[in-house]
């Protein structure tokens, strides 16, 4: 059947082209991080690790990496806790103005980070709060709480209610039920939303840029490296960040998403 073959060829070509498009910048980025010359452009002059050495010797860059890690972890924990409690209460109880509360909680999702950042900047300025990693963290909780809330809320099915009732009937109080029954049941979506929040915070630029001053996060530090134009050191820094993210992704895949799949 020539039609079947034609379809097969077309789909294969299309898939290869799109994967090529998707991978092109990453391949170029990583390849030229090994470039043995001052410019990350063709021709490729041979492999060296000196740009990686330069990155690891750059204390500002390493500091910003640590800052990013701290901000991502702590803001994500806060966002998950806030999102989970709100999702639990709104999914389980009859509260007044439910729709309004839900709308308010998810509203930040529809507003550009730039606008959230600018609002916080103006408010902190007016209140005399100096920009720091704290203000960055506050901003990251604002963008991640709605995300965690929406993910966990969408997974709060009615079938779990009976298990919670059973726990209640067996004498567990509300907090015990919440911590010992609901949290373990919801663990896959709690962890999924945590990892997503970490990713978003780790990668976020504009809030970190506007709300920090002396201590900056990694994307802001890389941004200031870009001023020197095309530079293999920037390639090396970018490639390192990519590899860290891939390792985190693998950990998440093995620890969390396998388990979700099994359920």
């Amino acid at each position: 059947m020539p039609g079947k073959w034609l379809q097969k060829i077309l789909t294969t070509v299309y898939t290869l082209l799109l994967y090529g498009f998707i991978f092109l910048p990453v391949v170029v980025l990583v390849l030229f991080s090994f470039q043995d010359s001052r410019l990350p452009i063709m021709p490729f002059k041979g492999a060296t690790l000196r740009w990686y050495e330069a990155v690891l010797a750059d204390s500002r860059l390493i500091d910003s990496l640590i800052n990013s890690f701290i901000v991502a972890m702590s803001s994500s924990v806060v966002a998950v806790v806030l999102g989970f409690l709100a999702a639990y209460a709104l999914a389980r109880f009859h509260l007044p103005a439910k729709g309004l509360q839900r709308a308010l909680l998810t509203a930040p999702l529809t507003v550009s980070y730039l606008i959230i950042a600018l609002g916080l900047l103006i408010m902190f300025n007016a209140l005399g709060v100096a920009p720091s990693l704290w203000t960055v963290g506050i901003g990251h909780v604002v963008i991640n709480t709605p995300l965690c809330f929406a993910i966990i809320y969408s997974q709060m099915g009615d079938h779990q209610v009976n298990i919670e009732r059973a726990a209640n009937d067996l004498g567990a109080n509300e907090w015990q039920t919440l911590l010992l029954v609901t949290v373990p049941m919801m663990l896959p979506s709690i962890l999924a939303s945590f990892f997503l929040a970490v990713t978003f915070s780790w990668d976020e630029f504009i809030i970190s840029f506007l709300l920090s001053r002396f201590e900056v996060t990694l994307p802001v530090e890389i941004w200031s490296m870009l001023r020197s134009g095309l530079n293999p050191k920037t390639n090396a820094a970018g490639s390192l960040v990519f590899m860290i993210s891939i390792v985190l992704l693998l950990v998440a895949e093995l620890l969390v998403f396998r388990r979700i799949k099994q359920k």
Binding site: P25, L29, M42, E204, F205
Partner: peptide, 30 residues
């Protein structure tokens, strides 16, 4: 997972990487 792998490069770095590809001395032009 393969299709979204480059999603995990940093967002600032991704734009920079496209600059490597698209600039006057970039891969595409060369």
């Amino acid at each position: 997972i393969l299709a979204i792998l480059p999603f995990w490069t940093s967002y600032v770095v991704r734009s920079y990487a496209w600059l490597l590809v698209l600039s006057k001395q970039g891969i595409v032009n060369t």
